[in-house]
Each structure stands twice: as C-alpha cells, then as structure tokens.
Computed example of a mutant assay.
Amino acid sequence: MIRHACHLFQVLVVTQDAFPDTETQSKWAAKVWEESCTKSKTFYILTDRVKGLLMDRQITERTANARSKVRNAVLPLIALSYGFSGALTEPAKSMNRALYIKLLDLDAAEADVRFHYKDVDARKGFAQNDIILAIIQSAWFAPGSKGKHPPGVEFSTYFSPISEVTLALVFTAVDFGLNQWGDGVFVTDGDQAHFTEKMYKSKYDTYLSEILEWSKELAPTRSLSLRRMNARGLRLSMHRDEGYPNLPVKGS
C-alpha cells in the first residue's frame, strides 16, 4: 500500500507538476493515500500525525527522485543522439562546444533551442527528435526488474496521452544533459552536474509555456503526437517483455 502510494506520487510529479510547491505536495499526499486505500480495499484515516510521520518523509521526498530518473535516462543518450565526441583533443572539444552552443542557441540574442526538433538545422518537427521518445521510453516504459510493470503501464491513465508537463520535464532534462558538454568534455561533477530545482525550475517553466503554446496552436496535431508517444512507449514495453531489448527508436 505504501509502495503504491510512493510510486503514484512520483507519477504525479512527472505528469502534473515537475516542481510542485509544498501545498501541492500535501494535497498529493492525501490523494495518493486515498487511491492506495481504494486499491488495497483497506481504509485508514490519514491523520495529521500519520501524514507528518509517513507522507512528508516517505512520499514527498520522492519529488527529486522522480526527476532524477529522467536525468539518468538522458545522460547516456546525449552523445549518441547529437554526435558529441568523447575524445580529449582540442579539435574534438572545439566541435563539442560549437554543437552545444548550436543546440541551445546560445549565440542568439533570444535563444530558440533546436535540440527537440526532428530537423535541428531547419527547426522542423517540434518535439519530434528521436531523443525525446527515447527518454520517454527509457524513463517510464522500460520493464523493471523481476517483471514489474513500468510506470507508463502500471499508471497508464497518467501517461495517455503524454502530458505537456511530462514533455516539458523531458526538454528540461535534455537541456541539463547538454550542459554537461558545455566545456567541450562531458562533466560529471560541479554545479552544472546537479539537476536541481534552483537551477532548472525557471527553464522548466519556459519550456512548459512554449509547449502549451504549441499545444494551443496545433491542437489536433498535438493530440495525435502525444498519443503516439504513449503508444510507442507501450510498444517498447511489450517488445522488451517478449525478449527484444534493443528495439530501435526510429520507425517505432
């Protein structure tokens, strides 16, 4: 029962508000407790004492953990997806720095990031870069250990379709992953290696605003795109269960 409540809390973070304030976390604690009681058909009153001892410590602390799962999904994909080089030569470092600046549009007066477009040069195909789907698949649809259902399957109603909040969190995580290459080599420590609310909430808010605007302008297309992301994630989960762990992203 507690396990289900904790996992559901993490799902709310990645589908409804990636950086929830204290009041929202408190409301979610009550919500996940009630849903867990319903699921287990065992009902316990959530007293203030129980909420303080149980929820605040064991559930709301998982807010950062939920975001960390996305961060961990991003880091192995950045170099392969965009072509960063692990070589330590000056030409390689120079190429990596130039690629980093290009993908985040850092040399523009007002940045218009390229990394999420299918065609990063022409900025065509909003949110259709292969890495976006790969992260969604890895973070929420890859089967767990001992045959456990991944969050995208266990809590499917929260991921169908993929929400704008989820997409904004993925964009923010890619931004974080790209920043690890800002000096021309992959960085594993220092301030830039931490995916914290202090450093990334403002970026998340910006990405969410842009995604909501895209969603409003292209409502029919947007709905289809987000549902396809969910369907492809489910397809990956099913194929992996059948013994195909290396299902490619392209064409999936």
Rank of each mutant, 00 (worst) to 15 (best):
H7I: 06
H7C: 07
H7L: 15
L8S: 03
L8I: 03
L8A: 03
L8N: 05
V11I: 00
V13S: 00
D17W: 04
T24F: 04
W28A: 02
A29P: 02
A29I: 13
A30Q: 14
V32H: 06
S36N: 11
K39N: 12
K41Q: 13
T47L: 06
T47W: 10
D48K: 13
R49S: 14
G52N: 13
G52R: 08
R57T: 13
E61N: 12
E61R: 13
T63L: 05
T63H: 08
N65C: 12
N65Q: 15
S68D: 11
S68I: 02
K69E: 14
K69T: 10
R71F: 07
N72Y: 13
A73L: 02
L80F: 09
Y82E: 02
G86P: 09
A87V: 00
A87P: 02
A92T: 01
K93I: 00
S94G: 13
S94I: 04
N96C: 03
R97F: 08
A98K: 12
Y100R: 03
L106C: 11
L106K: 14
L106M: 13
V113R: 09
R114N: 07
F115Q: 00
V120G: 05
D121S: 06
A122R: 05
A122I: 00
A122E: 05
R123E: 11
K124C: 01
A127F: 12
N129M: 00
D130W: 08
D130L: 09
L133F: 02
L133C: 04
I136E: 04
Q137M: 14
S138I: 01
S138P: 05
S138F: 05
W140M: 01
W140K: 00
F141G: 03
P143I: 04
G144I: 10
K146D: 15
G147C: 12
K148D: 14
H149Y: 06
P151M: 04
F155E: 06
T157W: 07
Y158K: 04
S160Y: 10
P161Q: 08
S163Y: 01
S163E: 06
V165K: 04
T166C: 11
L169C: 01
V170W: 01
T172H: 09
T172V: 06
A173V: 01
A173K: 01
V174C: 08
D175L: 07
D175C: 08
G177W: 03
V185P: 01
G190H: 11
D191L: 13
A193N: 01
F195H: 03
K198Y: 14
M199P: 01
Y200N: 02
K201G: 11
S202C: 07
D205H: 06
Y207E: 01
Y207K: 02
L208I: 02
E210W: 12
E210H: 14
L212E: 15
E213W: 07
K216L: 05
K216I: 00
A219N: 11
A219R: 14
T221Q: 15
T221I: 08
R222M: 02
S223M: 12
L224R: 12
M229R: 10
R232V: 10
L234H: 08
R235I: 10
M238Q: 12
H239Q: 11
P245M: 07
N246E: 10
K250A: 05
K250I: 08
